[in-house]
Design a protein around this nucleic acid. Structure first.
Lengths: 226, 226
DNA sequence: TGCAATAATCTTACTAAGTACGACCGTACA
DNA sequence: TGTACGGTCGTACTTAGTAAGATTATTGCA
């Protein structure tokens, strides 16, 4: 077992796997996943590049590790609670967490090596629905549907430099200006007359879709399971 | 304008922006987006690395270009047709196209520089809903909801090496074996008793979710619009 | 037909990454 | 006082993207 031995009484400022992963998140949060290199990470940690390899086997392992850490920030749904409330709370939490770590959005749903926080999360998700009376089949439907929506929404939301109503308009404007708007009349009208309105907030779409989905799922169990 | 001049009567085997992008897709399809490097692309094209820079300014421009090409493969919804039919056809098409270019899944919904095919696609999408009587507001809801779902689903589906019922079980098995299954009892039961069943096909979840979403949207216009 | 202008391709080389290999160093226990 | 070992680092090899400019091919025009 390669493990950080820091048995002494005084905490030495030494590296550890946890510090490596925490540093990696700091770097990625600051500059995106592209800015995360072994060298930039080493600098963040005040150490030379090769030192980090004492705690992780490869950069891939770092990625798997920080994705799991991000998962660990998301509220777990609580089995036994009202399933709708729990699903909504967890979805809102996931969206908020991903807003803080936009680089993680495309990575969360696509890991081949899920970490313990990820597994714990899935376990709680399934337990919540099963406890609420969902059949296996409906649980599978709900799992695929909710996660596709939540992560898909976050992907659009976080990929674009959109934070708050203003920047939607800015982004839309900067995209449109390169093109012959006459060629896309409906897109233009939609953008001008709806998206660029000062009171339009793309983020609010999240709630509409989530409600529609939960309503739809709710209709498939016989009545509102407790 | 930098443009390939091939005015002669005989087609010379020369480079062009189109050939560069087509080659890039071949390389990415074969080895993933990670395998797409300027050097591997040049080799595919039978040319030296720097030659491709005569047709594109940077690797980023290549990425933007091939993403737009992928978009161009997706069936356009037809304004005036039954909106449910059109939405379903386009969603199925998008899913099928992304199955052929899995590397593109996370890139499609996250471009800052949409190409003409992408804009044409969005235009047709909006036109189809507006023509069917959707309000601006409901169109915006539908846009965010459907695309989040379709791309989010494709992201899960294509990230994992899952193609067909067999490999779901394989993948699930290989993921589980690394962990203390006792710690995740509900996840384990769900996986064993449902996901690993020979007749379980993750791909079929797509239709369930899409139907639920379209039903939900349909309930918000006053009756089934033509 | 010959030649200058222009287009297309390639050579070289610089910089940034991931990481293999093995040297060094400080501490703890014999 | 070693000496073994965990932790850190120096060096260097490989693969990327791409800048600069040399070289070659083509084309329009005298």
């Amino acid at each position: 077992m390669v493990k950080s031995v820091r048995g002494g009484t005084k905490e030495r400022i030494s590296l550890s796997r946890d510090r490596v992963l925490a540093g990696a998140i700091v770097v990625a949060d600051a500059g995106g996943i592209g800015a995360l290199t072994i060298r930039s990470l080493a600098q963040e940690l005040g150490v030379k590049p090769m030192s980090v390899y004492h705690y992780v086997a490869s950069k891939d392992e770092i990625i798997d590790g920080i994705v799991d850490l991000v998962y660990s920030e998301v509220d777990l749904p609580v089995p036994g609670g009202d399933w709708r409330t729990e699903m909504k709370r967890r979805a809102d939490s996931a969206r908020r967490v991903l807003a803080g770590h936009p680089w993680a959005t495309a990575l969360l749903p696509s890991r081949l090596h899920p970490g313990p926080a990820t597994l714990r999360h899935h376990n709680a998700f399934i337990a919540t629905l099963r406890t609420a009376g969902f059949s296996m089949e409906l649980t599978a439907h709900a799992f695929a549907l909710i996660d596709s929506y939540v992560f898909g929404f976050a992907l659009s939301e976080n990929a674009l430099p959109i934070h708050g109503p203003d920047s939607v308009a800015d982004t839309a404007a900067s995209m449109m200006q390169f093109f012959d708007a006459d060629a896309y009349p409906q897109l233009l009208a939609f953008t001008m007359e709806h998206v660029m309105r000062p009171d339009y907030d793309f983020g609010k779409e999240f709630e509409y879709g989530l409600t529609l989905i939960l309503d739809g799922l709710g209709g498939s169990i016989g009545g509102e399971a407790k």
